[in-house]
Nucleic acid binder design. Structure first.
Lengths: 228, 228
DNA sequence: CGCCGGATTGAACAAGTGTTTAAACTACTG
DNA sequence: CAGTAGTTTAAACACTTGTTCAATCCGGCG
């Protein structure tokens, strides 16, 4: 009998049993995925009997819900404090600075499933990104756009999508976005440099960009005409 | 007892039983995910006995492998024909034009798991994207870059990540990227327009972009100095 | 026809799932 | 000290999982 997951338990672990179970579940989801997160695996990782897991949360589904809620609350809490001290509202920063080590891994796993709690969190993040971009436009950092919400949504979908794809990114660029230590990694540049280049100046030449825009508006005009 | 999945079976279905089982499995994965794709669900969808599934593929894992391989081959085949007739090498186009209706949904599900077959496919797609971008630079469509591979990798990670996030995109923008009919949908613009705006001119103003670039190179220089 | 080999079936199997339950234990109160 | 309410446990439950297996079906060949 050996522990599969070594929870970073301090010499004297003063967390309640319920909290220990919740944390073990989060770590298990982050490491093995939701499908592989069973009552017995969580129980073993939290060092309790399987029955205790159900006793504290009622059912496995409620445990999952509790984990989603806890992670969502943790992210919202971080964003609030980040705004209060004036630093940027960056999701990757939230992942790095969280006291929940496996937050990135957990998000990467649950973003692909459809949980209403996670869906609500994503919606909120898009809303936050929109107001943040709005401010960036006002301070001259970001370009204005016809579709602020659409732009914010796509930026968030790309960011979170990259999080879900972290194993592929690790393989392609040597950089694991879910690793809390990754911010200090020299491989950070392998992701950040090209990403900021794309977000800074785009990938298309201005001449092609203009042509594409014309074709686009022509297409949507044709679409309107067809509708008549 | 009713069929959960209605395979688009022609009046006279001339596919072999093995092919029917494989197609049913792909559709089941696309709709319900890999964890929910069980022997009995596949058997029911393919209208065969559970034993037949194992008889033809040896095990459930080998069936999954066969599905991955089949999808990967189908995408590579499409790309080859697309290049041959000179049209663009666009992944979303491959999803739309494939004769496998649920290819997009299947990819969205398996990109989050770690399958060596899918990993190899992603690596190939990045490689293809790199040479495609290289040609776009030569023809004056795309800007040159210091890190062609990094740029291609990130563009692919963002695109595929958005595919995995398709349910969130559907909710946020009303556009489902996995739907084969989506290319004809008027909601296409809700995704394509802001996406092309970002890829065309970026999101940052030139002045901020310059400052960020300076900060970036200063940071990596400092990183080099610290290493000494 | 008689036969044979692959395809197909449905019943079994062991292992793993979430959940229930009764018993034991623990800590705190009257 | 006795009692009690909340924890915790291990064993059982019903169910689903992938897989095995003997029996049956079916098409082609001698």
């Amino acid at each position: 009998m050996f522990k599969l997951l070594n929870m970073s338990s301090t010499p004297t672990d003063d967390r309640t049993t319920k909290a220990r179970i919740r944390d073990a579940a989060i770590e298990c989801v982050a490491t093995y995925g939701v499908a592989a997160t069973t009552v017995r695996k969580v129980a073993e990782a939290a060092d309790v009997a399987p029955g205790s897991v159900i006793h504290h949360f009622g059912s496995m589904e409620e445990l999952r819900f509790a984990c989603d809620t806890y992670i969502a609350a943790s992210i919202r809490e971080y964003k609030r404090s980040a705004i209060a001290q004036g630093s940027g509202v960056d999701l990757t920063a939230a992942i790095q600075n969280s006291d929940i080590g496996s937050m990135g891994g957990y998000l990467a796993q649950v973003l692909a499933e459809d949980s209403p709690t996670v869906a609500k969190l994503v919606d909120d993040l898009v809303g936050d990104a929109e107001v943040y971009m709005e401010q960036a436009v006002e301070t001259g950092m970001a370009r204005p756009t016809d579709d602020p919400r659409g732009r914010a949504a796509i930026l968030m979908l790309w960011s979170l999508g990259a999080l879900v794809m972290h194993k592929h990114m690790q393989r392609l660029l040597g950089f694991d976005i879910t690793d809390p230590e990754s911010a200090a990694s020299p491989a950070l540049g392998a992701y950040a440099a090209p990403a900021y280049e794309i977000l800074g100046e785009g990938i298309f030449t201005p001449s092609f960009s203009d042509k594409a825009r014309e074709a686009f508006s022509a297409m949507s005009e044709k679409d309107r005409d067809d509708k008549k």
